[in-house]
Each structure stands twice: as C-alpha cells, then as structure tokens.
Design a protein around this nucleic acid. Structure first.
Lengths: 245, 245
DNA sequence: GACTTTTAAATGTCAGACAAATAAAATCTG
DNA sequence: CAGATTTTATTTGTCTGACATTTAAAAGTC
C-alpha cells in the first residue's frame, strides 16, 4: 500500500483513496483481509480513529465489509449486482432531484435505454418475466389503487422487461434510469382514462415480448413515451393555471 | 431527524442511514447545514467519533461536504453530474472486474445502450462533438500508438457519440457502460489490420452522425460490436492455445 | 472608515481506555 | 482419546477528553 504526501486533503480521505486504488488496481483481491486497524494506523502513521474514518468511507461504497471478533477485520468485498443496483438507484434519484432535470430529459433517457433492451428481451425473456408483467398489469386494473401504487407497478413492469434481456449488466445500468423516474412519475395523477390507456399499452408490449416481436415492442414503447410526456405536460399546465388563478 | 432503535447494526451506519433518508426525503435541502458534530452526537446520544464515522460515510457518497472553521460544518451537497459520473465509473468497473462478467455480456450491454443514443446524437450533435470524434480517429491512425492509448481513444470516440445526444442523464448512465469496458478492452492486442478496420468503422459512424443519419449509425455500431466480439474471441482462443501448449 | 488583531466555533487528529463479539486454544470430562 | 466446555487473545465498536487547525466574525486600532 502506498504512502500519502502530507500536502493536500484530509488524512482519512487520502488513506481511503490509497486503499481504494489498491482494490481497483488488483493489489487487494476479493475476500482478502486488510491489516487490522491498529496495523493500518501504524503503517500510515495516523491514529486509529483516522483509519476507522477511512474504512467507513470504503464501507459506504461497499468496497469492504467488516467483521468483529478474533480473525475478524476488514475484507475486500465482492461488489454484488444487488449492492450496485441500490447505489445506482440512490445516486440516480438524487441526481435527478437535485439538478432540476426536466421531466422530458429524464423520460427520454429512460425510454431510449429501455428500447435498447426490448429486442433482446423479446428474444430471451423467460416465462417468469412474462408472468411478472401480466401480474402487474392485472394489479394496475384494480379500482382502489393509489397513484403511487400504480407508479410502483408501472416500474415493476418495466423492470421485468429489462430483466428479460437476461443481461445483468444491462439490468444494472437500467436500474437507475427506471427507478429514479418514479419520484417524478409520482407527481402525476392518473385518471381512470389514462390508466386504461397505459394498461392497454402495457398489454400490447407484453404481447409483443411474448411473441418475440422486438420491432412491435419498440413502437409500443415509443407511443408510451409520447403518452407519458403528454400526461406530464398536462399536469404541468394544470398546475401553472392553478398557480396563476 | 429520526431516532435509531438500538437493535441491529453499527450506530454509525444507522446514523448515516437516518441522515441519508432525510436528504433523499427532502427534509434536508441542498446547501443546508447539518447540526455540528457535537450537536448530532448529543441528538443521537452517541460520541463524536461515532457521528464522524457516519458523516464520512455520507461524504464518501458525495451526499455531504464539510468545511472547517467558524460557520463551517457539514452541508448537504448538490450531487453534480461530474461526481455522479466518477462514482458510476468506479462502481461499474469494479462490478465487471469482480463478477466474472463475460466479455460478450459487457459488450452487448455497452453497444445496446450506445445504439440507443445514436439516433439522438445524429439529430443533435454539435460541431464540437464531431470535431472530437474526428480528432480521435486521426490519433488512432498514428503509428507509435500503444494498445492502451488506442483503447482510450476508442472510448473517447464513443463518449463523444453519447454526449452528442445532448441528454446529460443519458451521458451519466452511459459513462459506466462505456468506461468500465476499457479494462476489458485493454486485454486485446490490436494488429495493424484490426486498427484499420476499427478506424474505418469509426469514420463511417462519424460520417453518419454528421449526416444526421441515425439508421446508418446504428448498422455501423452493430458491425462494430460484431467485430469487437470476434477480436475478443480470437484473443481468448490464442490465449487458451498457448496455455495448453 | 479601513485595516489589524483577537476570539470563538467548527472540523481534523490524537491518545488511551473499555465493551462486545468471535474464533482458536486450552482445559476438563467421560 | 473424543467431545464438550472454558479460557484466552484478537479485533472491531464505542466512549471520553484533549489539542491542533482553519476560518469567519467580532473587537480593537489608527
């Protein structure tokens, strides 16, 4: 492990960076145990609390995990797809909520990426993915459903579509794009009429995926994107009218 | 800010979670100052080092930034696209290197997503993006170029293509997919012949983008994906043959 | 009024201690 | 000797208290 020139930033940040580089660079391999906190403190010539702060930084990024007790310690963590999903979703959600990203921009990104998955999903989806989509579509038709639950179900349909492509890297990349939209979608109130439209398109989409018909799935997604953006525009317009009255 | 039931996990993790939820939930807004470490310690009934570990966790995710001195403290950080890019790339790179993701899987994901950007980029790219692509293609034809530099330039071309779509959310999502492939690509040795092929396809791609011709750009990307996978397969085969001899 | 000095508040760091968990070693028991 | 039990050592988690450093605002000076 390399040293830290005492020039610029916080010691704990420097130490975290040094260990992170060692992990990324392959000097520390998965499940390898790091030296104990006391040894690290000695090695870097800092106190144990400082080392601990560095380790907590790494733990926050799921780069290491810690275990107490004898032969415990900090271990290089195998970054699972699941962990990566969660981070991706958190980051994407914050990015959208903090940067005044327009609904159109987020929507365009989401559907562009989903359309990239559609042909693969049409080709490879399992019966399980189809069943999930059908079940969610069924849920969407129930009368008492809140707008929020409707949105959540909408996300579930699209997640199943993406997962149907059978490419975990794609699923990971898409997790952010799809899930991060949910807070934005939640601003929309869905009338009975618009729910009907969306359910119809979800059904068409699922039918196309079941039939292995990528091009049709693509056109349905295009229409769904258009419709979603129109709904959002109407909500904005209504809100603006209300504000000026 | 909520409390922490003393049942399950580390206090610092619980506190970090509570503050994180407050930020995501909008209870703490961008640039708002958190209570001082001493106040937080008092509020959560823990010691200052414990609070500090929690804050370092949040800092590692770029959720907060800290400032020393009077009227310093921890502030809710506006998550910039730049910060998000960096995190995205780190996470994606580790995910690929630690999970035995096949070259084909990563490659498929990357090109599927890039193809989603191509039509948008053909429509909206600025002269700047085109110039970047042309300049990188020119660099790729220079004789002394190392394989690594060739790969880096390849990534730059594709980054420009993606950025040309003019959608920062797309650029962010794609950053991981494109950049994380680089370590995998670096395993390939590029013969003069294969460089020539790739340069030719990059040129075709750039021409199509310049002409606003999305469909052609798409077909070029399909061919480039095929070619990349073939190259990788050959490298693997050669390596396997060498190992068995 | 403009400049300098002082002060106070906050994070960054350190040292030493104890608690709690845990696995391995030592001990005891049949 | 085999197996269960106790002890021990190691390591992380947490606390207390202190000092260093940075920084903005208050106080003082000309």
């Amino acid at each position: 492990m390399k040293i830290d020139p005492k020039k610029p930033a916080d010691l704990s940040a420097q130490i975290a960076g040094a260990i992170r580089d060692a992990i990324i660079g392959g000097d520390l391999i998965v499940d390898e145990r790091l030296p104990s906190e006391a040894e690290l403190a000695d090695h870097f010539n800092v106190s144990r609390p400082t080392v601990r702060e560095a380790l907590k930084r790494l733990a926050a990024q799921s780069l290491i995990r810690t275990q107490r007790g004898a032969s415990g310690g900090a271990f290089v963590n195998r970054l699972s797809f699941e962990d990566a999903y969660a981070q991706q979703i958190t980051t994407s959600t914050l990015l959208l909520s903090m940067n005044a990203v327009s609904f159109d921009t987020a929507c365009e990104a989401r559907f562009a990426l989903e359309r990239a998955c559609a042909p693969l999903s049409a080709q490879r989806r399992s019966a399980d993915h189809l069943a999930t989509m059908r079940a969610e579509i069924h849920r969407q038709q129930q009368p008492g459903l809140t707008d929020e639950a409707f949105c959540a179900s909408d996300v579930a349909v699209h997640r199943a579509l993406v997962d149907g492509a059978g490419n975990p890297v794609l699923s990971y990349q898409l997790a952010g794009a799809v899930e991060a939209m949910q807070p934005l979608m939640n601003m929309i109130t869905f009338s009975a009429r618009s729910r009907e439209e969306i359910v119809a398109m979800h059904t068409e989409l699922t039918d196309a995926i079941e039939a292995g018909d990528g091009p049709t799935a693509d056109t349905v997604l295009v229409r769904l994107e258009d419709y979603t953006r129109t709904l959002a525009r109407n909500v904005m317009a209504a809100r603006a009218a209300k504000a000026s009255s």
